[in-house]
Amino acid sequence: MPILESTYNPPFLFKNGHFSTIYNGLFRKIDDFEQKRERIELPDSDFLDLDWSYSNSKSDKVIILLHGLEGHGQRPYITGSAKAFNSVGYDACAVNFRGCSGETNRLFRAYHSGATEDLDAVVQHILINKSYSSICIKGVSLGGNMAMKYVGENRELPKEIKGVVGISVPCDLHNSSDQLLKLKNRAYAIRFKRHLTDKLVYKVARFPDDITNKDVRAIKTLKDFDDIYTSRAHNFKNALDYYDKSNCLQFLPNIKVPSLIINAKNDSFLGPSCYPYKEAKENPNLYLETPKYGGHVGFYGKNNITYTEKRAIKFLEKVV
């Protein structure tokens, strides 16, 4: 499939990748919006909290929304997307990954970029308990990697899954990890690490045989976190094994439902191999758009609707 030409051309300030990233992450607000929480039980005795919002009229379409690293269902990039999809006739199911809903999860494990078993649990819950004929998925950052991996893995997808959109997708997790270790991303990396290690306090108290305070003090970088906790909690050998097995890049050639990746060229979190030009050219189901601007999950738009929210709706309208 030919690479899509992007029309995104934001105001001057938002052409700066860092400004765009920080504005959308810290200053954007979504008002006049309500969600209803539902808890589902998982096969391994853990749980997920889902935040639902609804179209004004009865809908047979639902969009599953997946947040990024240390996000949750109330982040503006999730609620903004839910509100936009609600306005065009979709119900929206915002997934809070394990430990991200404001309550620590029950098990030693939590969530990670490749945990598609949890996404599948949400899909199966919707299929069994709801009455939607069309299910679409939109993932952001870590959630985008999970979404693309899910539809590219060796599984028979339900016929109800019509399309997928990934925004700011770290298609090569190792490559993205290397970028986050660089000085240009130091402020972001410190913020992520603080949130992640704060959560480990609960794990140390509940699972002292699996992780100790000494382990937590040894975490200096995000890669350390993946070496010491992510890999240990999710049965990987180390961080590199986790990145290797969980990155969606290797699964993109197998995608058989219409799928769109939008990765800005000035996204400081993404290295060269996070832009899957070759895979998009060779797979007629995979579309790739690489705007010059946008930062990481930035993409400012007028009327508090981001460019990627509009593009996701436009793309999925063609396939649903």
Rank of each mutant, 00 (worst) to 15 (best):
R232Q: 11
R232H: 11
R232P: 00
A233E: 01
A233L: 05
A233F: 03
H234E: 02
H234S: 06
F236W: 08
F236D: 02
K237V: 11
K237T: 11
N238Y: 03
A239E: 04
A239D: 05
A239K: 04
L240D: 15
L240H: 15
D241F: 08
D241R: 11
D244K: 15
D244I: 00
K245R: 15
K245Y: 04
K245L: 13
N247H: 11
C248Y: 02
L249S: 09
L249F: 03
Q250K: 14
Q250P: 00
P253K: 03
N254V: 02
I255P: 10
I255M: 08
K256Y: 01
K256T: 14
K256S: 14
K256A: 13
V257R: 13
P258N: 08
S259T: 14
I261G: 06
I262R: 00
N263F: 06
N263R: 06
A264R: 00
K265E: 15
N266C: 12
N266H: 11
N266D: 15
D267K: 02
D267S: 04
F269D: 02
L270K: 12
L270P: 01
G271Y: 06
G271I: 05
G271V: 05
P272F: 05
P272Q: 12
C274Y: 13
Y275A: 03
P276G: 10
P276L: 05
E279L: 05
E279A: 14
E279T: 09
A280M: 06
A280N: 10
